[in-house]
Write a protein that binds this DNA or RNA. Structure first.
Lengths: 230, 230
DNA sequence: ATTGTTATTATGTATGCACATAATATAAGT
DNA sequence: ACTTATATTATGTGCATACATAATAACAAT
């Protein structure tokens, strides 16, 4: 009652939801009523409620009021894996070796993904990511040259393709597909595993404003785990 | 100039960041200056800037001002997989079969995870999730009975363990680990795969306020993919 | 030179107010 | 009875203002 910030109010409300005082799917008091109860302005209540709504705990509707989310969708955030950081987070030294770097016409599946015509050339790069000089992941990547033409001048000795792209097109959209496959001969070889070993695969495609930039597959070494919190 | 909402302002600012007008790591004008430029109140600018800061595009500091995030961390949100929804999203009919449901003393590794003593009993449940009566995923789960004692009365014919828990402890925290393993005899059998097939595994532990609730492993059928956007 | 004080700056927060907007309930007109 | 207008309600948004707070700079005191 002494000092009501939107944060304390929000926390208090969150507790009321978590403890079940405000039931799942139930209607909660209106802003004015809450403002009186907490002894603060409606604006402050509004801010707290909006924050909780953003967090997915509340659903708000003009008229009809605010109600606790019926089926709480648990969402987890995870930072898109940047291999270099993954390696360094383990305390290992990161290095990478580019195996292939050519301009060729991609297979149709890739051309479709990058939204370029079948005759267009694209940049194909194969990289092995190393942790303390041991294979950590194998990367197979296609890049749309129309989206980032000046990538051909990039010095991939110093910086990885991924990091160059992040700097060049910092705020892109994308999708990620996680899966597991049995390593074939080639992949097994690149990550120093037995053929047939289960491999964790990340398949990522990124774009910026209708223009597709790159699509890649990352094959991690056996035993790799991707950790997240929610 | 006509109608500046915090949304339009935020969008405009986002563009300035994306196009590089406001360089990565660079300092951007102060709130007052921006308020003048956009012809609106400082409050509105503040709201827009805070939103962008929440989104991770800006970093703000009292004094020192606001600057564009130096190393943009791309974050993806994904909803924690609820198997039932995954199945239904494919247009298949969901069902599940409980294979095991016993109260026993868990192995030490599990007891540690649930933060219970080695002599305490816990609930162990094995479930096969079916899509159109074909195996979709195999679940192996331990539940801390001290956290949710009344779970023993739950009717797991109608509702899955997971959904019961979500309703019972709707707002918990947790961690998720993704990995890939080669299926052993037992798992292979449960998901109708060859032994040794690469299997996508989700390992999840959830807790609420220092109390651990459940830990489980989900072994998905071969070919399963987890899709996310960012 | 080191320490302490004060001023300045930029963001953070709270409030009161006015009006906008969406959804609904009620009353009026035909 | 059916449509249309109007009032009501709850949230959404914008503005002006005031003060809080953190970080720094400038300055003085020892």
């Amino acid at each position: 009652m002494t000092k009501q910030s939107h944060n304390t109010v929000r926390q208090s409300m969150q507790e009321r939801i978590e403890t079940g005082e405000w039931a799942l799917g139930g209607l909660i008091p209106g802003e004015i009523e809450l403002a009186e109860e907490y002894g603060c302005a409606r604006t402050t209540i509004n801010r707290a409620l909006q924050a909780l709504a953003d967090a997915g705990m509340l659903v708000r509707k003009r008229k009809g009021g605010t109600r606790v989310c019926n089926m709480p969708v648990r969402q987890a955030k995870f930072s898109i894996p940047v291999v270099r950081e993954q390696v360094e987070a383990m305390g290992s030294q990161y290095r990478h070796r580019v195996l292939v770097n050519t301009k060729t016409t991609p297979p149709t599946s890739i051309a479709t993904r990058l939204n370029i015509s079948d005759s267009d050339k694209a940049l194909y790069i194969e990289t092995v990511h190393l942790a303390d000089d041991r294979p950590f992941a194998f990367e197979s990547r296609w890049i749309n040259l129309k989206a980032v033409p000046n990538i051909v001048d990039a010095p991939f000795k110093d910086i990885s393709v991924n990091e160059w792209l992040i700097r060049s097109v910092p705020f892109s959209n994308g999708d990620v597909i996680f899966s597991a496959i049995n390593a074939d001969e080639k992949i097994a070889d690149c990550i120093e595993a037995e053929s047939g070993t289960a491999v964790f695969v990340v398949d990522r495609t990124t774009w910026y404003k209708e223009e597709y930039i790159t699509t890649l597959k990352l094959y991690y070494k056996p035993g790799f785990q991707l950790y997240t919190r929610f």
